[in-house]
């Protein structure tokens, strides 16, 4: 079942310098897609267009069958949550509890339900012991987990992670990634916007963006092995895949495998 339909979407801040050009993208319910691209490829703009923070110059966006317009933007925001890049700049509440409550207060959820949901989703992101803590006492990863809880509590169908791990340390990044996986297993549609090749290993499908255009939209393993596309978008193929490629292309015997691995371990 389709949950997001983007047709011929274009956007620019200044006429003549398009940020996104003729984007057509379909996302199925429960899918995990990775939007891969370098800085300035327009990937964050895409997420802002999806929730109506920016208005498209051309094309249509449908979320759950509902076309995005001035009248539907608030209904669409109830379906999509975004975890942004900077953990500090999306923490609205004075405490963890207040921050998870923020979205619920906006949706006018009754107070009793609110309290239940805060408990429930704080436990889910493993932040239940921190409910009364203030943001400056939390690590970046913990703040991102609170942001996730805030969105989960609003019970959206789709969560966009807009470079949500790029400001975290490896440990924080891994917890957020495993959380994405858990959520996706439970049926949440995940859109992960990133420039990190390792992150794109997870997920069903990769959409590669370059200069505002989709240059590849295919299954994860197909994209990760596609040397041409990766080079085109200035991304580096993962080391093991590179090894594999070399082995395949050279039709190597055992001894050669070793020497190649030696070389790779020295350079990579």
């Amino acid at each position: 079942m389709r949950i997001i339909d983007i047709e011929n979407l274009s956007f620019h801040y200044r006429a003549g310098t398009p940020v996104l050009e003729d984007i057509t993208l379909h996302v199925d319910k429960g899918e995990w897609i990775t939007i891969l691209g370098h800085n300035g490829s327009g990937k964050s703009t895409l997420s802002k267009l999806l929730v109506g923070l920016l208005r498209a110059k051309k094309g249509t966006i449908k979320v759950g069958g509902l076309e995005l317009s001035e009248n539907t933007v608030y209904d669409i925001r109830k379906k999509i949550g975004i975890v942004f890049q900077n953990p500090d700049n999306q923490f609205v509440g004075v405490t963890v509890r207040d921050d998870i409550a923020f979205g619920l207060e906006n949706l006018q959820i009754p107070r009793d339900t609110m309290i239940e949901r805060i408990e429930q989703y704080a436990r889910k992101v493993d932040m239940a012991d921190y409910l009364n803590k203030e943001p400056h006492n939390l690590s970046g990863g913990q703040k991102q987990r609170v942001a996730i809880a805030g969105i989960l509590a609003m019970e959206t169908d789709i969560i966009i992670f807009d470079e949500a791990t790029s400001m975290l340390d490896p440990k924080g990044r891994n917890t957020i990634l495993s959380m994405m996986k858990q959520l996706n297993d439970e049926g949440v549609t995940v859109i992960n916007i990133t420039h990190d090749m390792k992150e794109s290993l997870y997920g069903d499908r990769i959409v590669v963006l370059k200069n505002g255009k989709i240059i590849k939209d295919d299954k994860t393993d197909a994209v990760l092995k596609d040397q041409e596309i990766l080079e085109k978008s200035n991304l580096e193929m993962l080391l093991p895949l590179r090894v594999l490629r070399l082995l395949e292309s050279e039709n190597v015997k055992d001894e050669k495998v070793r020497s190649y691995l030696w070389q790779l371990s020295l350079t990579g």
Partner: peptide, 23 residues
């Protein structure tokens, strides 16, 4: 920061002047 915060607040369905429930 304020620009990003405003975006984050809006993405979480905050509409200035709309009634909200309170925790």
């Amino acid at each position: 920061r304020s620009d990003e915060l405003a975006n984050a607040m809006e993405a979480r369905s905050f509409v200035p002047g709309q009634p909200r429930t309170r925790l």
